[in-house]
Design a protein around this nucleic acid. Structure first.
Lengths: 141, 141
DNA sequence: TATATACCTATTGACATGGTAGGTAATTAG
DNA sequence: CTAATTACCTACCATGTCAATAGGTATATA
């Protein structure tokens, strides 16, 4: 609806990460369990978990007793990487994308510094906050 | 392409506001001139200018010698209102939209505080910066 | 061997974005 | 009064992304 919204992919991904941090103990947690707890369709959740595994944030194990689990400790994930993995780069304008080709207007573009500052602000924000911070509700004051 | 991108509507709107601040002197500036300087299609620019007039950020005058001009001084516009007018609220999740109906998960939603903090951060950022700041390249250090 | 699980490919409907087309109303210059 | 200029209005369209679904395959364990 509105363009400043975080996609469900990124939001669900974060919820999944939280869910695993809280429920994995020493076991693999099957998709079905996560889906039930989080009230997310199993099929849709699959596509999200696939991304997280592919990006190395989770490990998947097939077969009976299989499921998913974190590859690191909660304090070693940043919110930024979870979001960027599922939703793409945080760049607010094409000129600031990782692979951006130089813009011809660049030198006399008065807006660019605004987007650069904004970009730096949100990147830094999401970079500083770890998964553990989210679970404990720790935010910079 | 990627979901963190500011829409062209908001970006063009900002460029138009800058353009007018720099070129209006005491006259009304016709759409055609702005479109030419900014290299934006006239037809598309129309839809953006309509929004800005409707929102009270610009005045339009018809007929020969007509065009558009700012309704206030550049230092009296915030970037936030320009963006929100053209792109909608800055809320990153539905729960934080102005007219949001209460979410049943709200009380045990660990993510919500994250989005609230993020929302406050960017709202404050865009709120503090005026059109004049953009023109002069003044940003908080 | 049966069951549980992750993993893979493809498809769909809905919607927003970015942009276009053509016409109407108002104002001024001559 | 007429012609030119300009904003304003309604409608349309093509593309792409999002959110979600469907059905099948590979792998591990009990």
């Amino acid at each position: 609806m509105v363009h400043f919204m975080i996609s469900t992919k990124a939001r669900y991904a974060l919820r999944v990460m939280i869910d695993l941090a809280q429920n994995q103990e020493n076991n693999y947690v099957p998709l079905k369990e996560i889906a039930k707890r989080q009230e997310i369709s199993e099929k849709y959740l699959e596509t999200i978990l696939k991304l997280l595994v592919k990006g190395g944030l989770l490990t998947g194990l097939r077969g009976k007793g299989g499921g998913y689990r974190l590859t690191r400790l909660p304090q070693d994930y940043t919110v930024r990487e979870i979001i960027e993995l599922t939703e793409g780069p945080l760049a607010p304008v094409a000129c600031l994308l990782p692979d951006a080709s130089p813009c011809c207007r660049k030198d006399n573009c008065l807006s660019l510094p605004l987007w650069e500052n904004y970009h730096a602000l949100i990147t830094d924000f999401f970079n500083r906050i770890t998964l553990l911070d989210v679970i404990h509700g720790n935010y910079p004051s």
